[in-house]
Design a protein around this nucleic acid. Structure first.
Lengths: 220, 220
DNA sequence: CGTTTCATTGAGTGCGATCAAGCCGTGTGG
DNA sequence: CCACACGGCTTGATCGCACTCAATGAAACG
């Protein structure tokens, strides 16, 4: 099984227009980021929250010696940057070109009743974020490499309607999310494919061939 | 280096009296739990929150084949059980005898302005919880065994005033928190002690001998 | 067509897990 | 008071999963 790279086109973050999507109404500014661009930095003050409109985002944390951990991946509709009271523990980066609604937290207070409603939404989102992080904890602490990759692929498949799944991230990002090396991820993918559980059409596109079998790997 | 067991005395959970401590005022009921007793179960509906008054609590999650992950340890003043909207992802257990203030979430609404203030407190606590969990993520995903144990001991030492630290948990709990086996934890402790970084007077009591050296192990 | 970048594969290593004693402090009963 | 058993901790020997190092393959781009 051998697939190769797809490179994102580099470009500048551009201010676009005042955003206007469902829950967050006209609050905030829409921005466009190119693949790999930083949305906010680790240790930066956390005064904004970000909502993905199009594309995908990853949050990453770097150790001084270069080891990297990805906190989570975010997709259209998700809120990014809730993580903290003061400073961001992770940085956020565009994963391929994407469009982000940037909202200043302090402005929410100006919107009175609506602002309060949005704050409740943020709390709910923070709570869900915590749940996902706890699930991630279990995966990192107590699952084997093949279980990690199987869990990940199932999780990705859950997000889409059809059975074709398009991955917005490369193998290195998967590895840094799962606490593995890129080589191990690659081997596990090959192994899952050999076992007939999944089928990769290209390195970023797959379908599940045997959902029950895949779910059995994940234990519980 | 060889230390042995200290066994907790078994007893029943007893209802005590209506609690009355700082922020949460007279809301809630104080209860006493014996070491090892379950405070709430995995998958149980999450309608209560719990505040540690005395003793310590661990949250744990079990995989069907017995693998266990500890989410976090909680100490006096900490809120437990914020984790979720609907059902608890982890169970909570007393770690040695302890005293817990149990608060029904729905009653907070009855307290009007005060209730709203407490809800804000809960959000802040949820946010802090998320931060701690993210730190834990980094530890599980990208740190070595010795770094994990060193991080843990530093973290425990941060909680106390003097330089004598008393651990409320045994080696198995440390292992399940750090994503290691009990044997590896034991070896790393021995190793840190041989290196002159810490000194264990008994298996649950230690002091830091070389803080800078210990901090150097943790990378960043 | 060469370069670049990411993915896959192979060979060998090492860290942490597993299996198995042994140790120590505590509790129990003669 | 001592003998013994029990549970938690430590230590040793060995194993194996995932990492490391290295080479190759496959697409995208100038």
């Amino acid at each position: 099984m051998t697939f190769a790279a797809t490179r994102p086109a580099p470009s500048d973050a551009r201010l676009d227009a005042t955003g206007a999507i469902d829950d967050f109404g006209a609050i905030g500014v829409r921005m466009v980021f190119a693949g790999g661009e930083e949305i906010y930095a680790q240790d930066e003050e956390a005064c904004m929250i970000y909502r993905v409109i199009r594309g995908a985002v990853r949050t990453t944390r770097l150790l001084s010696d270069g080891r990297r951990q990805i906190g989570d991946f975010y997709y259209p509709g998700d809120l990014v940057g809730l993580e903290s009271g003061a400073a961001h523990r992770f940085s956020a980066e565009a994963l391929g070109d994407c469009e982000i609604l940037v909202i200043k937290k302090s402005t929410l207070a100006l919107y009175g009743e609506d602002g309060a409603r949005l704050e409740r939404l943020m709390w709910a989102a923070t709570s869900r974020e915590l749940e996902r992080t706890q699930e991630h904890l279990m995966l990192l602490g107590r699952k084997t490499a093949s279980e990690k990759v199987a869990s990940f692929l199932l999780d990705m498949a859950r997000r889409v309607r059809g059975d074709q799944v398009q991955l917005p991230m490369g193998r290195q990002d998967m590895a840094d999310y799962l606490g593995l090396t890129i080589e191990t991820v690659s081997r596990m993918v090959t192994q899952l494919q050999s076992a007939g559980l999944v089928r990769f059409d290209s390195c970023r596109r797959f379908q599940i061939r045997n959902r029950a079998g895949l779910e059995d790997m994940v234990v519980a």
